[in-house]
């Protein structure tokens, strides 16, 4: 009895979940990093709330981007090191499906967790509650898109010794449009202006990346795993 692609993908997602919950510290580290980075800004700039509110979208987005990147490094690395990635690529399932499943699981464990934690950080940065829906939506779209871009970067750098700096070097320039639209959507929501335009751009980027990036990431893995 052969196993269908969707069944195999759900198996991979469950595997990632189980692995993550066996190692909760690795799950929490990027979130703590997110908190710490946001704390740096009031300490280095000014604790004044009005100033913070002006800086908040940028601070929030830069911190989210950096902490997501931190967790993306582990996307394929662990599996490549212990040889289980080889087993996955020989599992008679399309590599693209495996990449999609792993990336979705990764986003659920890192990006979604970051989105859920963002109101806490937002409150500390004096972002009004009224701007929360836009902020949450933009972060959800942005982190998901970043996960796909990161999957390409992680696939390209998986076998390399100094992979983590290179991963940032590769992924951050690609992620700049996300930062622009995400921060601007949040900024406009704080100012009480319409932020639909920026959100639509983010959504378009997300759909576009979701469609193409899995293939690029699978191709990247094929290159580096050989």
């Amino acid at each position: 009895m052969s196993v269908g692609v969707l069944e195999a993908m759900s198996l991979v997602v469950r595997r990632e979940m189980r692995l993550a919950f066996r190692r909760p510290d690795q799950l929490l580290q990027p979130l703590v990093f997110f908190l710490i980075v946001t704390t740096l800004f009031p300490l280095s700039l000014s604790p004044e709330l009005s100033l913070l509110r002006d800086m908040a979208p940028g601070v929030l987005w830069v911190a989210a981007l950096l902490s997501s990147l931190l967790s993306l490094e582990t996307l394929f690395k662990g599996d490549a090191e212990d040889g289980t990635l080889e087993q996955l690529t020989l599992s008679a399932q399309p590599l693209v499906a495996i990449v999609i499943a792993k990336t979705i699981a990764h986003w659920l464990l890192s990006g979604a967790a970051l989105v859920l934690m963002s109101p806490l950080v937002a409150t500390a940065l004096a972002i009004p509650v009224g701007a929360f829906p836009t902020m949450l939506a933009s972060l959800a779209l942005g982190t998901l898109t970043l996960s796909w871009l990161g999957a390409i970067g992680a696939g390209l750098t998986v076998g390399l010794r100094r992979g983590s700096v290179l991963l940032s070097l590769i992924v951050l320039p690609l992620a700049m449009p996300l930062l622009i639209f995400g921060a601007s959507a949040t900024d406009r929501a704080i100012g009480g202006e319409g932020s639909a335009g920026a959100l639509y751009f983010l959504a378009a980027l997300c759909v576009f990346t979701c469609t193409l990036a899995p293939f690029a990431a699978a191709a990247a893995l094929r290159i580096t795993l050989e």
């Binding site: 196993v3 198996l11 189980r18 692995l19 066996r22 212990d82 040889g83 996955l88 008679a92």
Partner: peptide, 30 residues
């Protein structure tokens, strides 16, 4: 790939999963 089983010189096990889970997630793909 469905007709083939490959065992590299490393055991290719996830350290944090039990032996049974390791089998479930590897064999279950095929």
């Amino acid at each position: 790939q469905s007709a083939m089983a490959y065992a590299s010189h490393e055991a290719a096990l996830k350290a944090d999963l039990t032996a049974l889970e390791n089998l479930r997630y590897a064999v279950g793909m095929k």
